[in-house]
C-alpha cells in the first residue's frame, strides 16, 4: 500500500516545470521508494483538473494523501524544504536510510 499520493501540475512549455518533475522524481525515488503514487498533470492537456483544483501557479505540488492536503509551488529546487513541505519531520533519519 502506498502511503503518499502526490499530484504535480506542470506546463510542458515552461522550463521550470521540467526541472520540477526531475527534482521531484529524484526526491521520491530516494526517500519514498515504492511508497508513493505520483500523478503528473499537464495543464495544457488537462485544464479541467487545474480548474477543479484551483491552480494558479506552475509548478504546483499537492500532497493529496496523507491528509491534510499540502501545497508547494515552485521548481522544488531545495530538497530539504520539499521534504519539510511534504511533512517529513525527521529528514536526517530518512537521509541515512536513503544512503544505505
Amino acid at each position: 500500500m502506498t502511503n503518499y499520493w502526490i499530484q504535480l501540475f506542470i506546463n510542458r512549455n515552461s522550463a521550470t516545470s521540467v526541472g520540477a518533475e526531475e527534482n521531484l522524481n529524484a526526491i521520491l525515488k530516494k526517500y519514498f521508494p515504492g511508497d508513493y503514487q505520483l500523478e503528473i498533470i499537464d495543464i495544457q492537456e488537462d485544464p479541467d483538473k487545474a480548474e477543479e483544483a484551483g491552480i494558479l501557479a506552475i509548478p504546483t505540488l499537492i500532497r493529496k494523501w496523507p491528509q491534510p492536503e499540502v501545497r508547494l509551488i515552485g521548481a522544488l529546487t531545495v530538497q530539504t524544504r520539499v521534504l519539510a513541505g511534504l511533512g517529513i519531520a525527521n529528514v536526517d533519519h530518512l537521509q541515512k536510510q536513503g544512503d544505505k
Binding site: I43, A57, I58, L72, I73, L76, V78, G85
Partner: peptide, 16 residues
Amino acid sequence: DVITVGEFDLSAFRVR
C-alpha cells in the same frame, strides 16, 4: 499558507 520552493509562473492561471 503556500510553501514556495524555487521558481514558478502563473501559466496555470493564464490557461484557465
